[in-house]
Simulated assay, not measured.
Amino acid sequence: MGIALILSTGLHPLWAADTPSSANDSLDAKRAQQLLQRAVLRYQAVQDKALAEFARQGEFTDNELYVYVLDMDGVVLTSGGSSATLVGRNVKTMRDIAGKPFFAEMIHKARQDGHGEVDYRWLNWADNTIQRKRPFFEVSSDRIIAVGYYLTRASQDQARAFLNHAVAAMKTSPSEAIEEFNKLDGRFIQDDLYVYVIDTRTGRFVAHGTMPRLRGTDGNELRDRDGTPIIKNLIAQSLKQQNGQLQYVWKNPVTQRSENKFALFQVVNNYIVAVGYYKP
């Protein structure tokens, strides 16, 4: 979902400071802002009569984007998307799949600042997957009006930061780090970001965050859909430089589609630690 809190003085330019995670996410953010602006103007014009309009497919939906509205106590008043099942319910104590009380955070920011944003994880009904979502919100007449967009792909900077954390863990305790990398619900899996590790002495996977079946297998035999020998190329490149980047085609665990993947890697003793980001 996405939420927008609208003030009677008009929209706040809070979006300008945001840095979306990729070019695609930037376009989606702009779409969300435009839809929110239309919803805000409509609400300011007709007040609660707009709630019925927001609930219908049409002017106030844009593919997977939709408007939803809360009152300041946390009751959902209307929704044009998957949160329509929540209309009439007080959601202040609701948490997302990761346990985050995002509605409470949103309401707090609404009361304190009159506008803001909050990240959480929500069902994208366009492809029926749980994804990160970021709503823009403002307050108008004690109504929280919101539009959010899905962040389906991490950026290169986010992948780099994720790799740095993984490398630090490997340097501290390789065995503990590898165990953590292999946990499907661990801290080293975040949407489309995960870690995999290759033993340079054997070419075998010792860790893979999303595909347990690869652990212990010979990576030299692994090829992408275009026939590129992924691990063979990765090991060859690691012999020339301690860190770098490798491109190949791989399934994005969020979109469930084969996409261009750019694996950032760093050599730590006898291991290659890698984290990748996707581009469609």
Rank of each mutant, 00 (worst) to 15 (best):
Asp142Ala: 15
Lys133Leu: 06
Asn182Trp: 09
Phe188His: 07
Tyr120Ile: 07
Ser173Ala: 13
Thr129Asn: 09
Glu180Pro: 00
Tyr120Met: 10
Met170Cys: 02
Ser175Ala: 15
Gly116Ala: 07
Ala177Cys: 03
Arg153Lys: 10
Ala146Pro: 01
Glu180Trp: 00
Tyr120Gly: 08
Ala168Phe: 01
Val147Trp: 08
Gly114Asn: 06
Asn128Cys: 07
Val167Pro: 05
Leu123Ser: 01
Ile145Lys: 05
Val147Phe: 12
Ser140Tyr: 14
Gln158Ser: 09
Ile189Phe: 03
Ala177Ser: 04
Phe188Ser: 06
Phe188Tyr: 15
Glu138Cys: 13
Glu138Trp: 12
Trp125His: 11
Asp127Ile: 04
Asp113Met: 10
Asp127Val: 01
Gly186Trp: 01
Gln190Val: 10
Val147Gly: 11
Phe188Leu: 03
Asp157Ser: 14
Asn182Gln: 10
Ser140Cys: 14
Ser140Ala: 12
Ala161Met: 08
Met170Tyr: 02
His165Lys: 12
Asn128Phe: 08
Trp125Val: 12
Gln131Glu: 15
Thr172Met: 04
Gly116Phe: 03
His165Thr: 03
Thr129Arg: 09
Thr172Cys: 03
Arg132Glu: 05
Thr172Leu: 11
Phe136Arg: 14
Ala126Glu: 14
Ile130Asp: 12
Ala146Asp: 13
Arg143Glu: 08
Gly116Ile: 05
Ala177Asp: 02
Ile130Arg: 11
Ser173Trp: 00
Leu123Asp: 01
Val139His: 02
Ile144Lys: 06
Leu123Cys: 01
Ala169Trp: 01
Phe137Ser: 13
Val147Asn: 11
Tyr120Thr: 07
Ala126Cys: 02
Gly148Thr: 05
His165Asp: 13
Gly148Met: 03
Asn182Gly: 03
Arg143Thr: 07
Phe188Cys: 04
Asn164Arg: 05
Thr152Asp: 07
